[in-house]
Design a protein around this nucleic acid. Structure first.
Lengths: 116, 116
DNA sequence: ATAATATATGAATAGCAATTCAAATGAACA
DNA sequence: TGTTCATTTGAATTGCTATTCATATATTAT
């Protein structure tokens, strides 16, 4: 007969490595902030300079700059300088895909709740 | 000639509603924690009772219970009682899809960095 | 009813993270 | 060079959150 802890062993064995799990957590916590989510959605479809993002989100420039740095460190966005302005854009399409997928998930949950 | 703020107006107009953005932020911050990520991965493929999750993550029961509650409030997992044990499982396949998609994103980023 | 097992809950603590404020950097221009 | 505009940076503050500890609830067995 199987030992009672065999099942747990198996689960542990097919868990991704700790480093990967930490990276995943980091990734999601970066996009798990409404300010950064807004920035990402703003950048999806159009690159923007810092000042424009400030006006769109109606937030102080310093706050935006700090958050842009977080997004950049996580490789979710990139930037290029053009004269005195710095223009930010999404670094690849993967982020948009994940946002869209989660957006659908949220929408489904919402309709489920409405149905009650 | 177009007013310089027209572009920003357009971006604002096609931004999801504030409530949706907040929900998205909440969703990602729920899965943006390595403990909760581990729980979700553990539950993907096998339902588990609280005690088993504690052993798998090697964490105190109370900490696990608190995090299970967060995941349950976010509708990411559900549970049923069976005798004195409570068995948790993922609430739908959407979560696994998002995890997998992010997992791929992380992996790609990792290889990009190695290539440098 | 009492004990034992499994899980949940509430309060407290400690660490982290978002924003603000003040100052610094970088680029264009007079 | 000095000035202005656009953005970044660092320090300080404030609010949030994960964990721990102690306790409560629920289920089963004696």
């Amino acid at each position: 007969m199987k030992h009672s802890h065999d099942k747990e062993r198996e689960v542990i064995d097919r868990l991704p490595r700790d480093e990967v799990l930490a990276d995943l957590g980091d990734f999601f916590s970066v996009i798990g902030d409404s300010t950064r989510i807004k920035i990402l959605f703003s950048l999806s479809g159009s690159e923007l300079c810092v000042g424009a993002i400030c006006e769109i989100l109606n937030m102080e420039q310093s706050a935006i700059s700090h958050q842009l740095k977080v997004l950049k460190n996580a490789d979710l966005i990139r930037c290029r300088r053009e004269g005195r302005t710095v223009i930010y854009s999404l670094s690849d399409g993967h982020v948009e895909e994940i946002l869209r997928s989660a957006y659908e998930h949220i929408s489904e949950e919402a309709t489920k709740h409405e149905a009650r």
